[in-house]
Simulated scan of single mutants.
Amino acid sequence: MSSADRTGADPSHDLGVDDGVRTLLLLMPRVVARTKRTPVPPQLEKYNLAPRHLSLLAYLYFDGPLSVTELATRLEVAPATVSLLVGELNGYGVVDRDSDPADRRRRIVGISGEYVEAVRGWLGNGVRAWRTALEPLSPAERRTFIDTLRVYERALTDEREGRGDAG
């Protein structure tokens, strides 16, 4: 399949902003739909988990146990929101809250041993797809791509909250 087939754009000429917008507006709903169809592992189905849970579990899976404050910073939400999510997941037994060995007053959150493989499986398809997309890029190109997605996400939020220009 040629690049033109995958993106809808002719690779022999520069992609203009409007062509890029058109291509992405057509592509993103398909990406989101496929992502939403990622099945929840059988071990986790009964808990009715949502994407917000997967994001929290992804940080714990990739980065290991973290404090609620660290999770809130990474997820860019309030610590109270993370506390609620952690409380919910802890109640299901999916995560453990333990004392930090370096500071016994501090609590850290980690994935319960029996659920590590289920979380890995849930993340697996996305990890493979992102590796396929990102590996051919240079580190600078990866940074540009990720930064672009962040700007896009912020612009969507700004627009929804009346701070953007639909221009």
Rank of each mutant, 00 (worst) to 15 (best):
D103H: 12
Y92W: 11
D63K: 15
A80C: 01
I108Q: 10
T23W: 07
L49W: 05
V109H: 08
W130V: 11
P101K: 11
A166T: 03
D158S: 14
A72V: 07
L123S: 06
K46A: 11
L57P: 00
T132D: 08
T35N: 09
E45Q: 15
L49Q: 09
V21P: 01
M1L: 05
P39W: 02
D19H: 04
R37D: 11
A58T: 11
G162Q: 04
D10P: 03
G16R: 13
S55T: 03
S138N: 04
A58V: 01
E88S: 14
A155I: 03
D147V: 03
T38M: 09
F62Q: 10
D19N: 06
V116F: 03
A72H: 05
Y47A: 15
R105E: 04
D10K: 07
D96S: 13
R6Y: 01
L84V: 09
S67V: 01
L75G: 06
V17K: 10
L49D: 07
R106M: 12
P139Q: 02
L54K: 15
Y61T: 04
A155K: 11
E159S: 12
V40N: 04
H13P: 00
P11D: 05
D103I: 05
L134W: 05
S83G: 14
T132H: 12
L84E: 09
E114Q: 15
V17H: 12
S12T: 12
A80T: 14
L85H: 13
S3K: 13
T144R: 14
S67F: 05
R22E: 11
G124V: 00
L66D: 08
D165M: 10
L57K: 06
L25K: 12
R106T: 12
E70D: 13
I146T: 12
R97W: 00
S99E: 05
L71P: 00
L44R: 06
L26I: 01
G91E: 07
L24Q: 12
T35C: 02
I108D: 04
Y152A: 12
L56F: 05
T148C: 08
P29G: 13
G121N: 06
M1S: 15
V82F: 09
R34K: 12
S83F: 01
Y92C: 13
F145V: 15
G164L: 11
L75N: 02
L71Y: 03
G121W: 03
R37F: 02
R154I: 02
V32N: 07
R34L: 10
A133D: 02
R142H: 01
E114M: 09
V109I: 09
L75K: 10
D100N: 14
R142T: 02
T69P: 00
P65K: 10
R105V: 05
F145G: 03
R120N: 06
R128A: 14
L56M: 10
L54T: 03
A140H: 07
D98G: 03
T69R: 13
D14Y: 08
S2H: 01
D158H: 14
R142M: 06
R30M: 05
I146K: 08
L85N: 10
I111M: 04
A58P: 02
M1W: 00
G8Y: 00
R160A: 15
S67H: 08
V119K: 02
T132E: 13
D100Y: 10
A78T: 12
Y59M: 06
